[in-house]
């Protein structure tokens, strides 16, 4: 798909997953969820089945990053599919335990 913009919302073409882009590198990225290309949140989802090899699911409120660390997505709606770029699975970003300050 086209280049990603921080702040924009995307959804899976094949499951309920929705994400917000927190950070993204320049250039086109092959971002998938459930094995199918992600689409703009406002677009129609093409539909279809989740690829069993991309079916680890997404969790709401979790942040996902690529290995290079320059792509970061926040899952705003969970789904069955899992996120990947160029076929490589994105990984959960470790939550930093902070004392509640407000």
């Amino acid at each position: 798909m086209a280049a990603l913009k921080a702040g924009s919302r995307l959804k899976s073409g094949v499951c309920d997953t929705q994400v917000m882009v927190i950070a993204a590198p320049d250039g086109d990225l092959d971002l998938t969820c459930g094995g199918a290309a992600m689409v703009d949140a406002a677009a129609d989802a093409p539909g279809g089945d989740v690829d069993p090899s991309h079916k680890n699911g997404t969790q709401i409120g979790k942040r996902y990053v690529n290995e290079a660390g320059d792509l970061e997505l926040l899952c705003t709606k969970p789904g069955e599919g899992s996120l990947a770029v160029g076929g490589d699975a994105l990984t959960l970003k470790e939550a930093k335990a902070l004392p509640s300050s407000d």
């Binding site: 927190i22 709401i60 409120g61 979790k62 942040r63 926040l74 939550a95 335990a97 902070l98 300050s101």
Partner: peptide, 9 residues
């Protein structure tokens, strides 16, 4: 918020 609070934490 994202940097300091865990969702549903």
């Amino acid at each position: 918020i994202l940097g300091s609070v865990e969702f549903m934490g």
